[in-house]
Computed example of a mutant assay.
Amino acid sequence: MSKLVIREYIDVMANDKQDEVIYLSRIAQTVRVVQLMLDMLDASEQQLALQLNTEHGQRMDVARLYSDKDVAERYGVHVRTARDWISSGRIRGFRMDRRWYSRADWLDEYEGQMAVELE
Rank of each mutant, 00 (worst) to 15 (best):
D16Q: 11
W85E: 07
V79Y: 06
Q113W: 07
I10A: 15
F94Q: 05
H78K: 15
S102Q: 00
A82P: 01
V12E: 08
D97M: 04
D16V: 06
A28M: 05
S25A: 14
I27V: 13
W85P: 02
A43M: 02
R80K: 14
V21C: 05
K3F: 08
H56F: 07
M1V: 06
S25N: 11
R64V: 00
A28F: 06
R99C: 06
R26K: 13
L118N: 13
V5K: 10
A104W: 00
G57R: 03
R59C: 07
Q113S: 11
I6C: 03
W100L: 00
D108W: 07
E111W: 03
R103T: 02
M114S: 09
E8Y: 11
V71H: 04
H78R: 15
G76R: 10
A14Q: 08
Q46A: 05
K3I: 12
W106L: 01
D61Y: 10
R26T: 04
V33K: 10
M13Y: 07
G112V: 04
S2F: 02
D70N: 03
E111I: 07
L48M: 11
R80H: 12
R59L: 09
Y110V: 06
K3Q: 07
M96P: 03
R64F: 01
D108M: 10
R7D: 12
L118V: 14
K69D: 03
R83T: 05
L4G: 05
R92H: 10
D70T: 00
Q46F: 02
I22A: 09
M60F: 11
D11E: 14
V21W: 09
S88I: 00
Q35T: 11
R32Y: 05
V62A: 00
V31R: 06
I6P: 01
V21I: 15
D42H: 02
G112D: 10
I86N: 00
